[in-house]
Amino acid sequence: MSIQHFRVALIPFFAAFCLPVFAHPETLVKVKDAEDQLGARVGYIELDLNSGKILESFRPEERFPMMSTFKVLLCGAVLSRVDAGQEQLGRRIHYSQNDLVEYSPVTEKHLTDGMTVRELCSAAITMSDNTAANLLLTTIGGPKELTAFLHNMGDHVTRLDRWEPELNEAIPNDERDTTMPAAMATTLRKLLTGELLTLASRQQLIDWMEADKVAGPLLRSALPAGWFIADKSGAGERGSRGIIAALGPDGKPSRIVVIYTTGSQATMDERNRQIAEIGASLIKHW
């Protein structure tokens, strides 16, 4: 067993022997301040990774656009098919120029040779490549099948209805392509620590998230040296922004954090800054 596999296998073990965790309302004060600064709703939840206990939450059962955070769930569904012998990570998928959609920095470079399922998941999570996500959605049967996968996990809230990039439209009061912070946090925890996926697939999923290259201005910008984070960000229309993450000190994750916002007129930089400040408060009061 590799060191990384050992780390993920012992996530519940280490967490069980940690000192009790206590909620700190100071972080919620910052979440509410972010709402004021952005002029928009902000949803927040913080779960203990081992027990699933909610440590703090704000608007945990209000719907927010998922945006690209759905790509972690998508690759979880792909990995479940791999575990069941219905898919192979090494299978190569070929596609054409007509398949390319807006923001496809990886797939646009491989029109000639195609990409493997493993490479597509890596591109979808680490670079948020939209064509990679659409190609992977095709392998599982489309958005409705991802929703069905989530329902089978016990998540009857999260739903995907459309493809990239239309799913980022974020129309107010439109339930399409949305989740709730509580539902997303619980589902992410199941994917990373539950028995739904094999140990190898859980490790692969967290490795992809740990290698995320496009979430630097968010929670990662607030992390002290030595902290662990595996995350996936999302951005959408109407001032929408979000991030889902597993993080913790001492090089291992111990909490799940989900943050979503929508309806702001603020710039992307300002949305990023507010999420980073929430992260800084979380870490300060850990």
Rank of each mutant, 00 (worst) to 15 (best):
H24D: 08
P25G: 10
E26W: 15
V29S: 14
K30T: 10
K30P: 02
K30F: 06
K32H: 14
E35I: 04
E35V: 05
G39K: 08
A40E: 05
G43M: 00
I45Y: 15
L47V: 09
L49G: 05
N50H: 13
N50V: 09
N50P: 08
G52M: 06
E56C: 06
F64N: 01
F64Y: 13
M66L: 08
M67R: 01
M67A: 12
S68I: 04
V72A: 08
S80D: 15
Q86E: 07
Q86D: 13
E87R: 03
Q88G: 14
L89F: 12
R91K: 11
R91Y: 11
I93D: 00
N98H: 08
Y103K: 03
V106F: 15
E108L: 15
H110S: 12
T112H: 14
D113A: 08
M115Y: 04
M115A: 13
M115F: 04
V117P: 04
C121Y: 02
A123M: 04
A124R: 02
A124P: 02
S128G: 03
T131K: 02
T138M: 15
T139C: 15
G142N: 14
G142F: 01
G142Y: 03
P143R: 04
P143E: 05
E145Y: 08
F149N: 15
L150V: 14
H151K: 07
R159P: 03
R162I: 00
L167G: 02
L167C: 13
A170G: 08
D174K: 03
D174W: 02
E175Q: 10
T179H: 00
M180H: 14
P181I: 04
A185Q: 00
T186M: 14
R189A: 08
L191A: 07
L192V: 06
E195N: 08
L197R: 06
L197S: 05
T198G: 07
L199R: 09
L199G: 09
A200H: 09
R202T: 14
L205Q: 00
I206P: 00
W208D: 06
W208A: 04
D212K: 05
G216F: 14
P217S: 14
L218Y: 02
S221F: 11
A222Q: 07
A222D: 13
F228H: 06
F228Y: 06
I229K: 00
I229M: 13
K232S: 01
G234I: 00
G234T: 01
G234C: 14
A235N: 05
G236D: 05
R241S: 14
R241Q: 05
I244D: 01
I244C: 12
A246N: 13
D250P: 07
K252R: 09
P253F: 06
S254V: 09
I259N: 02
T262L: 07
S264A: 13
S264Q: 14
S264R: 08
S264P: 04
E270A: 15
E270I: 06
R273P: 02
I278N: 01
I278T: 03
G279E: 03
G279D: 02
A280C: 13
I283Q: 12
H285R: 09
